[in-house]
Write a protein that binds this DNA or RNA. Structure first.
Lengths: 341, 341
DNA sequence: CTTGGCACTCTCAGCGGGAGAGTGCTAATT
DNA sequence: AATTAGCACTCTCCCGCTGAGAGTGCCAAG
């Protein structure tokens, strides 16, 4: 990261601000006018040339204004940007909505995605908390008729999975109830492998139910890859840089392909704080013109999920980072509540 | 609906086929060449003029080819289009996927949307089966710690809702189990109102749980409006007629606004068969350039949901209708299975 | 080091013209 | 009476041109 004089920092900041606001290359004259710089356009021009040599800005063509490079944005984020939080009233509204949505895992994941999309005016992505969805807390067999039952598994963290089971032998509701109570106690705390082992040591109906549970847990593990929530595609379409051209379609295709999408957020988060990948810094070819702002959330016991947004490089990073951080924190709180602390 | 001579029908069919395939106005010469008509372009031109007078075709401008009107498409669908079904191998693949996804309501709704989007290359919309989600089949209180429990309600049709409950008094797992068993028996078959009445006749912990159930059922009723699944937005972006311009954004905004979206499909289905709304036939302003193909699905007991697609007016109606019909039938089968017949 | 001045470059919108595609009409043909 | 060939006419689309405008880069003066 190059070292800059104060005046250069000031000018770089102004260029990026302006470009974020207008999506147009920024001219020396416009900078002087709009930011009341006590300098002449010529002086600003020479500073701009220096910043360009340092790799922080570019030129679309000879006689156009300046545009930030990935490195320029990076510098901006690291050392020029104020650390902002959401407005108190926004915070209040959002956390209020979250409190109302505790009830249902799927519901609050969807809420998180739509809230984030609205707050940032970008596309938002949320993955469910992993780990939480693969350990059994309780199982129940609900009779449908004498040869069929609905198996309902409550997982650590409150997620619920269900599966129909055709029973080998006719069974009364009472039998089923007793049996599922015993199995629920036996299987509590199991993951898929443990449940499968247990199923082998049982026989008859009990074995059938236990292996049904094992299958559900296994599916729950496998489903993690497909289970991704997104919202705010319209916000991407509203960006002038994505207005036309086939690029948008590829981006949307990526967002709609949950299997690929699930791989987008997780990598490369070390610390606990929000992470930013600018332009070419992310590995996904269709997103080379985009930036990602993402973080992880989760409880004390290490069940973590990811939450983030995708938008143009030219993005209000201060606000985006603030929003992702805030929503991530709210989600962590909720996970902790569900974990029972 | 005007009456047409055989030759006119033939020509109209050819025009619509061609326009669906190419998205370009269709010229008389091109028709003769491509469809090997035993006529001269001049003859075809005069027939085209007749069809235009009848309101089945239009002209973008004087020296351009013909384009179908809404009425033209309507005539095509009613009397020119072959009734087609999906290829046997497609049917097999799709129904196989559906069988694997029985387990989870949310999962198969999502699957239905993505399957339909893939089959038709349009955007797909699916609503959950209503009714099914508002009558209780079973309730279970899972202890989290002594003052907190997770209430899990299994609804008719196998949907599951859940809610955290802070208990007024410390309770042992065994107490909780006994209690929830009794309440499950009492409340089976209730809707929100009945459960609320029952809650008033109980006291202490039982009252708390019962009113929790009532609240969940009520929320389930309210949530129906928000609970819509869509997929295939990328397919809309791929259509040449929607390539640019702000119209697409409005369309996507409509799809992403679940509250409005939920109102899109239900109206005006009388019979059991698939319904088509062409262009201005639907009430939604941003969708005036689109057609909807939608149907309802459901079980014998009258729990119905809607399933459909949105695409450009210029759409392969035969295939779309076939796909919607097929997926709708599969979903009806699944609902019936879950209902226990 | 800063600044005014100036030449130079590049984009963009607008204009005109020519090619091409396609129609509509009319008169000839079957 | 229906069909067809011929032809004039219309409209779009593409191409190249041009002038205006915006903005830079450089240089020489302050």
């Amino acid at each position: 990261m190059p070292h800059l004089a104060d005046r250069q920092r000031e000018i770089l900041r102004a260029v990026i601000r302006d470009f974020i606001a207008t999506a147009q290359p920024v001219a020396s004259g416009a900078l002087v006018r709009r930011y009341r710089l006590p300098l002449s356009p010529a002086t600003v021009r020479s500073e701009l040339a220096t910043l360009e040599e340092l790799g922080l800005l570019t030129h679309p063509h000879t006689s156009a204004g300046r545009v930030p490079t990935d490195l320029g944005y990076r510098y901006f984020i690291e050392s020029l940007m104020p650390r902002t939080t959401l407005q108190p009233d926004e915070q209040l509204t959002v956390s209020h909505q979250f409190q109302q949505a505790q009830r249902d895992t799927a519901e609050w994941l969807r809420l998180a995605a739509s809230t984030l999309a609205r707050l940032t005016a970008e596309a938002a992505i949320v993955t469910p908390p992993a780990g939480i969805t693969t350990i059994l807390k309780h199982v129940e067999a609900v009779p449908i008729h004498e040869r069929r039952a609905l198996l309902v598994a409550v997982l650590e963290g409150g997620a619920v999975r269900q599966q129909l089971l055709d029973l080998d032998q006719p069974t009364t509701p009472d039998e089923l109830r007793t049996l599922s109570q015993r199995l629920s106690d036996t299987l509590r705390g199991s993951d898929a492998a443990t449940a499968a082992t247990c199923a082998r040591s049982e026989r008859g109906l009990a074995a059938q139910i236990a292996s049904g549970v094992a299958r559900m847990l296994q599916e729950a593990e496998a489903a993690r890859g497909h289970d991704v929530y997104y919202d705010g595609i319209q916000n991407i379409l509203a960006q002038p840089e994505f207005g036309e051209g086939g690029r948008v379609r590829e981006m949307v295709a990526l967002l709609e392909d949950r299997t690929r999408l699930a791989e987008l957020l997780p990598p490369a988060i070390f610390g606990d704080d929000v992470h930013v990948a600018i332009g070419a810094e992310n590995r996904f070819e269709p997103l080379q013109d985009c930036s990602l702002v993402f973080g992880r959330y989760g409880g004390a016991t290490g069940f973590v999920g990811y939450v983030g947004i995708v938008g143009p490089r030219r993005m209000d990073y201060a606000r985006s980072i603030g929003a992702v951080r805030f929503v991530g924190r709210l989600m962590s709180d909720l996970v902790r509540v569900v974990e029972g602390n």
